[in-house]
Every structure is written in C-alpha cells, then in structure tokens.
Simulated assay, not measured.
Amino acid sequence: MNIGVLRIGFSLPGCSSLKEKRQRMGGLHERFGRTPSIAVCESGDLDRLEASEWSFVVAATSAQKVESICSEIEEKLQRTVDGRIMDVEREIL
C-alpha cells in the first residue's frame, strides 16, 4: 500500500465572510470524501477569509497510482474552485 499527502493552498480574493468562503470552496468534502481511497480536510487558514488550505490523503496500490490520483485532484480543483491555487505540496509516504 502506498500513501500520498497532497496539500493545496488557495487564495480567495474578495472573500468577505466564512459563509462565502464555504460556498467558494464548493463542497470539497462531498466531492472527494466519497471516494474510499481519499480522505480530505481543511487543514489550514481556518479563520482567514481570503485563504484556505486543504489536505488530501490518498491510498493506492502503487506510488504511480497515488501520483495519478493527486494530479486528478489538482486538475479538478483548478477547474471548479472559485479561487487561485497558490501552493501545492506532494509527499509520498
């Protein structure tokens, strides 16, 4: 079993409330948390309105599959989140 951790930091320019922040992040728990091989949580910038950090833990049978899933997550986030990706960190354990 191979495990990877993907941390992504977002900039949310003009975000004025925690409610708006939740709406702009668009339900990442619901989209990615349903997949058995992915665990997701908001891991940083919890109280900052114009920033958010999310972590994804991915489990798969090979490091190549973990990398592939992480790439898919990152691509989906670029298309669906109303904000900019500012920082991406990947770590294979």
Rank of each mutant, 00 (worst) to 15 (best):
M1V: 11
I3L: 12
V5C: 06
I8C: 04
I8N: 00
I8V: 15
S11Q: 14
P13S: 10
C15M: 12
S16T: 10
K19I: 01
E20P: 04
R24S: 03
R24D: 02
R24N: 02
M25G: 00
G26Q: 02
G27L: 03
L28A: 01
H29A: 10
F32R: 03
R34L: 04
T35V: 15
P36V: 07
P36Y: 11
P36I: 08
S37D: 14
I38H: 03
I38E: 05
E42R: 09
E42D: 05
S43G: 10
S43I: 08
G44Q: 04
D47G: 10
D47T: 07
S52P: 02
E53A: 11
E53Q: 13
S55M: 07
V58A: 04
V58N: 07
A60Q: 08
T61V: 13
T61D: 15
S62A: 08
Q64C: 02
K65A: 15
E67W: 00
E67V: 01
E67C: 02
E67Q: 07
I69L: 07
I69D: 02
I69K: 03
I69E: 07
C70D: 04
S71M: 01
E72F: 07
E75Y: 02
L77F: 00
D82A: 09
G83L: 04
R84V: 12
M86E: 13
M86L: 09
M86Q: 09
M86N: 08
D87Y: 11
E91C: 07
E91D: 10
E91S: 12
